[in-house]
Design a protein around this nucleic acid. Sequence first.
RNA 1: GCCGGUGUGGCGGAAUGGUAGACGCAGCGGAUUCAAAAUCCGCCGAUGGCAACAUCGUGUCGGUUCGAGUCCGACCACCGGUACCA
Length: 852
Amino acid sequence: MSRYAPNEIEPKWQAAWDEAGTFRAEMSDKPKYYVLEMFPYPSGRIHIGHVRNYTMGDVIARYKMARGFNVLHPMGWDAFGMPAENAAMASGGHPKDWTYQNIADMKAQMKPLGWSLDWTREFATCDPEYYGQQQALFLDMLEAGLVYRKNAVVNWDPVDMTVLANEQVVDGKGWRSNAEVERRELTQWFFRISDYSEELLEAIDSLDDWPAKVKLMQANWIGKSRGLRMGFERVDGGEAIEVFTTRPDTLMGASFVGISPDHPLAKALAEERPEVAAFNAEARKGGTTEEALETGEKLGFDTGLKVRHPLDPSWELPVWIANFILMDYGTGAIFGCPAHDQRDLDFCRKYDLPVTSTFVSMTEVPSVSPALSGVAFVPPKTETVRWTESFNWGEIATGEEAIAAAIELAERDGWGRGVTQYRLRDWGLSRQRYWGCPIPVVHCEACGVVPERKENLPIRLPEDVSFDVPGNPLDRHPTWRDCACPACGAPAKRETDTMDTFVDSSWYFARFTAPRAETPTEMEAASYWMNVDQYIGGIEHAILHLLYSRFFARAMEKTGHLPASAIEPFNALFTQGMVTHAIYKTEEAGRAIYHFPEEVELQGDRAVLKATGQEVEVIPSAKMSKSKRNVVDPDDIVARYGADTARWFVLSDSPPERDVEWTAAGADATQKHLARVWRIVSELPEAPEAAPQGADEALAKAVHRTIHDVTMGLESFGFNAAIAKLYGLTGAIQKSGASRAAKTEAARTLAQLMSPFTPHLAEEIWAELGGEGLITGAPWPVADEALLTDDSVTLPIQVNGKRRAEITVPKEMGKDEIEALVLQHEAVQSHLNGGAPKKLIVVPGRIVNVVV
RNA sequence: GCCGGUGUGGCGGAAUGGUAGACGCAGCGGAUUCAAAAUCCGCCGAUGGCAACAUCGUGUCGGUUCGAGUCCGACCACCGGUACCA
């Protein structure tokens, strides 16, 4: 008997697949199936989360292959991004070298796992062949009116004189300079995704095979709301201040009008009055994230200007500048209603502004007024509210009715109009960074902003750049910017902003259908392979990446790069959980320092650095991130146990949609199990020619029950449950006294059912048992319905919902007969105390409940 | 702050509204062995009991139902996203 030797069989079968071209995808008459996992960022090493993600996709791909589909399962690299520049800054190399080296290293780590990938389609988004096509796409979108320029705020580091990513802002300070970050306006390129708000929202309903939670998150993100856009007339006769509100029903509770420090009025005031300029500078401190704005300290400045309340011209409201109002949202101005909005209430209490409730009374209104309690009361939209008499639109209405009435009144009297507003903002794609796709436009003094000519694409990144000082190397490159204007030929300057890396990942799935095409896509290939039938990736991409991709598919349809059938590019989506790991953190001079797990020693509840004994803060379970140094490398698992063990192991224990905390315990057990399967196969010749009565049939039943259960599991991402059933069948074959022929047949089926999970071992068994060709792609076994049912069923008997006994009855026994049997049952009798049951519930084939 | 999710033995987890804890890990006991490794068999939520069995038990509190881990409401803790991390 030979031993289970993964290090021998795995390279052998991988070579066999390569030679046969098993995973190379070509268009054919067969039905196609496109399975895609979100492509990795080449951080340097693959981590255990990648293994889990790509093994899931591989299981699906191999299963679909066995079901007769022509499967496309490609792989590539999301290769632009900040870490490459950070590495260049830290160690002096070049982002390109760093990235391509990482790709080579990670590919070398991925190959031994035996994933059914079509490597002939591989590309990296930093290949000029890819980003050049992306530039062509950009130009087509520009021509189609889907791209424009406007001002937007960024995080500005005043010491390093550079734009910071949100991630580089830690507690409001720049991560390198430790200087307080400011919000600063820059002219940026934008995609008109908000033009598609309604369409992207409505089409969510058609995404039947998407998780409900992702659809809900997207809908909330788009955030459709009906509200009132209205002007507040200025007492001094200046230009009215436009605001948008979703709660015009609370207009009678208005205390002030607030404007953003970037509002034209605030800027104009700052020109004249130094104290306004000083406040605006102060108010611009801090990062741009919604979280920072919502949770940060609210600051205000009374401009001294007054506006009139639209319903009562004698009622004057002060105009304040407030730091929590962003110019990017709505009109950059709000009216503050402290009684019914917590943020406004906090603001008014801080600056001693009046708080007026717009309710006289209602059941839900707290007895203490917001002015005293400090707790704002948001009027319910669906419940009837008793409004104050000053409301012209009636005393009693639900919040929704009052909102509608307010809009109607405003439109009738001409001081405002009802508008549908979306939370979704246009997608700012400009990045002031080197390692990204250059935006293919030219700035000409005579012609303005001019698109590059397509024949000049790709606009390549220059290679002679330096990272020794912060800022965008393209900006300070001596010659790269210089070019001829594509329109007039005069000397001009290139755009030095590059594209957001989300652009790269918004169409790669389409590029995989024709990865070497001279145009972004090829219609024939795109029409054949699109859509992605099954997309798999992390829940952290639930909103941005998926929404941007849905927008891009529409934009590509509009510009003739995708068929109309592909505007929703992902038929089915599965969001797998993350593999998490503790983060180990210490602080030095107010800055966080992260430590690798191997640098840390655990001592009961506390953890210390091995080197110094310094106590380390343990953040229990967090997303793996290179910058947090909590990434687990799967190499030693693969090296020690083999790919099949690693593949089986990452899918066996936890449901794929759930986060798992990584532990290495259990890999031993997985390998023991695979060795046991191999041993069972090796020992088949010792099984008897003839079996005792019923043994063969019992084994066949176990086999077909398992075919059914595993197939169901594969259809519904129930990988862990499917694996549990495979453990069960293995045990059943081992313990069975069935004949050699029956056991051999069972082992062949077991190998087929295992083949998506452990393809190398499955091939080895298939060959050992005389299977024809490769097991990969061999037709999937079909369960025989006749073998799935038993002649008798065991019914639990409950008394008042608690299990007290059970009876085994023939499957076809009628309700009346079961009732009679149950009532005679000793355990039931003793609970009845001679009386009759109040109720007797018989659920055929399931359960009996006696209500006493 | 806001949006979304998760919570079940010592651990990972199973369970179309129908026997809570499948399967696996760890642990305990046994067989085999000179001994070990490997392998095989058994036990394994808590409390009480020799046992049969009884009571309790799926984050907390409440509700719907003959019956709730599952549905509804409120809360707590943790995780993801929050538009320049990818």
